[in-house]
Design a protein around this nucleic acid. Structure first.
Lengths: 346, 346
DNA sequence: CACCCTTTGGAAAACGTTACCCACTGGACC
DNA sequence: GGTCCAGTGGGTAACGTTTTCCAAAGGGTG
């Protein structure tokens, strides 16, 4: 209770003395390494428990591993990440690895770089980057220093593994759902991507592409109508305003993300347009709030838990063998129809 | 790009050699320590930049600090944390400290202990615990080993600082608002707290207490009506069902958290009760989704950003002087009236 | 000019752990 | 009875920093 005497930490030397063995022996037991008899293991473990010894991660990192895995979250607000994180921690729960999250700034390359560098400086054994916006060169630099798995970004590289959701399929699920209901004028609100090096790798671009492909395959090529704003509530609001100003407004709006759909709903309510009576609305991500009663938004559920599990698994494999061939995993999303989509009136 | 040769990291020795000084000198420059002339500082800094040197945090931790601060989040889903986190990172942005988040399990003492121990093992310089559920003894144990600030938990201790929001005031803001609108039968849904050692320290208990006090001060002591469930959507749903079954149901429901209010809205919609026509509903936390158009929930805004800033500031102070007298900061919440509250019909 | 103090710089010993190597034992095998 | 090998245990030198000293140089003071 009294701060004056922060007691010296129990070290491996204390354990060795207590168990009357060498520090090497203790180290072997700690790492389940070869060269220690069952009796010795038992004796050492007893001493560890008795003394309450815990290995010092920093010191371990100097020679071997730190048993720490870093997960970079670009935007902690995105309600889709918790699922992924659960998947990651679930897969890692019965290993010796501990997960720490590095908060990257939203859409901020500088912040991302700062966090990834900080993770490397702390000797983390592996890094999972979630939907990074950094240029590919930086990601490959990170991956060349420490085992890395990239989540939510398409494209592949010789140095890291990727886990993504099939955004093209997801978009076509939405278009198909709306077309089945009888809609023809289905508009899409996308997040505008300018950087040419990223353009094919970002999920937003894939969703827009998937929308285009699906519209064509349903014979609705003529009706393709895309508004470019941003994946924010404001972006959805602006996009909806623009669509309402059309000579013939769409009867359904496919927002590229749930948060965008929130802005759309806001704008429609303001304009006195009823949902789904006059216009149907669908989102993407199946975020927590999509299921709330007053919202009940039709959305696309990415297999967040599976994404996380796979990312963690691949990372462990890459830590075990840094030179293994890179893997790309693409998971399938599912449609979650709710009360914001219905057949058109006309 | 090619993994085969993970290049050796640049160390302080390399910098020293390049700048033709001792490693001691480089170390002094890194830490802005006394005993280095301006010319030497300049020379060393030039070498650092030229070689792209970055200090190895683990090695630093062995002797001095790791320049790492751990923030324990009990539940990453809680949409209230991002605000606090922004406040923390904002305050720390122009220091050398880096923040990492430790994901604690929801309401899980074991998980909390695992994360805090992991932070200690990694030599973190300071720890911020957000709304911890662990017994006070464990928190004090942590605080006795490493500088600690506790957020969102009342009560005070000789070994750590606290930053909280005034939940009693917050509750009275809600009751006052509803009473001003003309409501008398105002019910409250609380999170039931069983553990006697925590009971006075948890925000939920304070909110329930504030509700009672406010009801009395508005002359509504007779109308006090509390349902004990949990701070979850299901808890809100169940609580609302119970309230609707009363002989004379309340005309307003004060849910102890926004997520609870979501469950309440669901139950009311299901029962064909209109909001705010028949029953007004208020939440607490002013989470992101509270402001969404279709929800538009009256709520209480905790000064999340300020909470975070203060927590970070106190932590820096405590790192500078571990023996300073503990501080308790209590911030004031504000009411955010929206469309789920209105005067009663009768 | 002897003395003391301040400034500047460095040598060397920690810090806690693991990797690498070597030594010893006892049994199997020829 | 020698050789080889598997199994067991330990000694020691790293790993990259900071800290604690100590020495030398310069500058004021009496």
């Amino acid at each position: 209770m009294e701060p004056p005497a922060p007691p010296r930490r129990v070290t491996i030397v204390d354990v060795a003395r207590h168990a009357q063995v060498s520090t090497t022996a203790v180290s072997k037991v700690l790492r389940n390494a070869y060269g220690a008899s069952p009796e010795m293991r038992a004796k050492v473990r007893r001493s560890i428990d008795e003394l309450g010894y815990r290995p010092h991660a920093g010191a371990r990192g100097l020679r071997g591993q730190t048993y720490t895995i870093g997960v970079m979250l670009p935007d902690i607000r995105n309600p889709f990440f918790p699922e992924i994180l659960d998947g990651i921690t679930g897969r890692l729960a019965d290993t010796d690895y501990q997960v720490f999250l590095g908060p990257g700034g939203c859409n901020d390359e500088k912040a991302e770089a700062r966090v990834t560098e900080a993770m490397i400086d702390r000797g983390m054994d592996g890094i999972i980057l979630i939907a990074p916006v950094s240029p590919r060169a930086h990601i490959e630099h990170v991956a060349s220093v420490v085992p890395t798995v990239v989540v939510g970004r398409h494209g592949h590289s010789p140095v890291y593994d990727t886990v993504t959701d099939d955004d093209v399929t997801g978009a076509s699920l939405v278009v198909g759902h709306l077309a089945d209901l009888g809609h023809r004028r289905i508009a899409h609100i996308e997040h505008h991507e300018t950087d040419p090096t990223r353009i094919a790798e970002m999920p937003n671009a894939q969703r827009a592409d998937g929308y285009r492909q699906a519209m064509r395959s349903f014979g609705l090529a003529e009706e393709i109508d895309i508004v470019s704003t941003t994946y924010t509530q404001q972006g959805g609001y602006d996009g909806a305003k623009e669509l309402l100003a059309r000579r013939r407004p769409p009867t359904a709006v496919f927002a590229g993300a749930d948060i965008v759909a929130m802005g759309v709903l806001e704008a429609l309510t303001e304009a006195g347009v009823s949902v789904p009576g006059d216009i149907s609305v669908a989102g993407y991500d199946n975020t927590t709030f999509a299921s709330f009663g007053p919202i009940s938004l039709t959305s696309v559920d990415q297999a967040g838990h599976e994404i996380g599990e796979n990312a963690a698994r691949l990372l462990l494999e890459r830590i075990a063998d840094r030179h293994k061939a890179p893997v790309q995993i693409k998971l399938s999303p599912t449609l979650v129809p709710r009360r914001t989509t219905a057949p058109p009136l006309e």
